[in-house]
């Protein structure tokens, strides 16, 4: 994973609440990193195999024009300090259209709006988000439903577990915290049954977590993390609980924070793949989250 950039964000915009949630998160990210926002709306196009008949396309320019109008309104609503451009792309699938746009615009991350109505009224993934979270070559950020914040992000949180693959997320988070000058939380999730939890010493030491970074990341990262902790740039938290819900409930959530997850071991190289644990976690957190692609090996 190269140095994290939010330089050129692809905002999956539609003139809907999830679209505005994505836009808000995009603004917050742009104010953190100085990113340029590409507002992209996919114009649905017939899959030729759907065999729609009569097959004329007189509706396409009408839809195109309406979508542009919506994009222009969205662009006009952006704060003056945000650099932006608007784009439409035709595809029979929203996810495929966004991936093509990302490739063509050289996007460094895709920002999506979350859906309302899920458990705890936070994240409930739609088909497009699910596809992107399992196939994008660039990080995918998801705003929770009703995300209002447009202010600069104030915290980064990296979540990792006791599994290989933590390296990418730790490295990404450390680099992002440094390049955007943001405080970082390194959160390790431990799932324990009651007996294990009782036998756990009060408070796991920072040193233990650094050791974990070394074990599941690498030595260099551990040194870097230790350094940041020493400089008060990073904090460490071990969240324990008998399951995801329990462990995540134990955490407190910061205002304007972005939670970073790695991809699961199932990810092909340099693509995202939302792991089962991460998928469960994101239902329980109120903050925007971002899944980064797996490390190239």
């Amino acid at each position: 994973m190269s140095t994290p950039t939010f330089r050129n964000l692809i905002i999956a915009y539609t003139a809907t609440e999830p679209g505005r949630d994505a836009l808000n998160l995009g603004i917050a990210m742009a104010r953190t990193s100085g990113a340029h926002l590409n507002l992209v709306t996919v114009i649905p196009e017939d899959n030729v195999y759907a065999a729609v008949y009569p097959s004329d396309r007189g509706h396409m320019p009408i839809i195109q024009q309406q979508v542009r109008e919506w994009l222009e309104q969205a662009q006009a609503s952006l704060p003056a300090d945000i650099s932006s451009s608007i784009h439409t792309i035709s595809d029979s699938s929203d996810a495929a259209g966004l991936l093509t746009a990302t490739q063509q615009l050289n996007g460094s991350a895709i920002v999506l709006g979350g859906r309302r109505g899920g458990l705890l009224r936070r994240f409930r993934l739609g088909g497009t988000a699910t596809t992107l979270l399992h196939s994008s070559p660039v990080p995918v950020a998801l705003a929770p439903g009703g995300y209002q914040n447009q202010e600069k992000l104030s915290w980064l949180t990296a979540m990792f577990g006791t599994r290989p693959g933590a390296e990418a997320v730790i490295q990404y988070a450390l680099a992002a915290a440094q390049s955007f000058n943001l405080p970082l939380r390194l959160v390790s999730l431990l799932f324990l049954d009651q007996a294990q939890a009782d036998s756990l010493p009060d408070g796991i030491e920072t040193a233990d977590l650094i050791a974990q970074v070394e074990q599941f990341g690498n030595e260099q990262l551990a040194a870097q993390a230790a350094d940041m902790v020493a400089n008060d740039q990073a904090a460490t938290v071990v969240a324990t609980g008998k399951d995801v819900h329990d462990a995540v409930e134990a955490l407190t959530w910061m205002e304007h924070e972005l939670v970073i997850f790695g991809s699961s071991r199932l990810a092909s190289n340099q693509h995202t793949f939302l792991g089962a644990t991460a998928a469960r976690i994101l239902r329980h957190i109120p903050s925007p989250m971002m899944v980064i692609p797996a490390e190239t090996t």
Binding site: Q64, R68, L71, E72, Q75, S85, I86, H87, T88, I89, S90, D91, T100, A101, Q104, L105
Partner: peptide, 8 residues
């Protein structure tokens, strides 16, 4: 290119 780009 498929991207229709009104402003950039």
């Amino acid at each position: 290119p498929p991207l229709s780009t009104p402003s950039s």
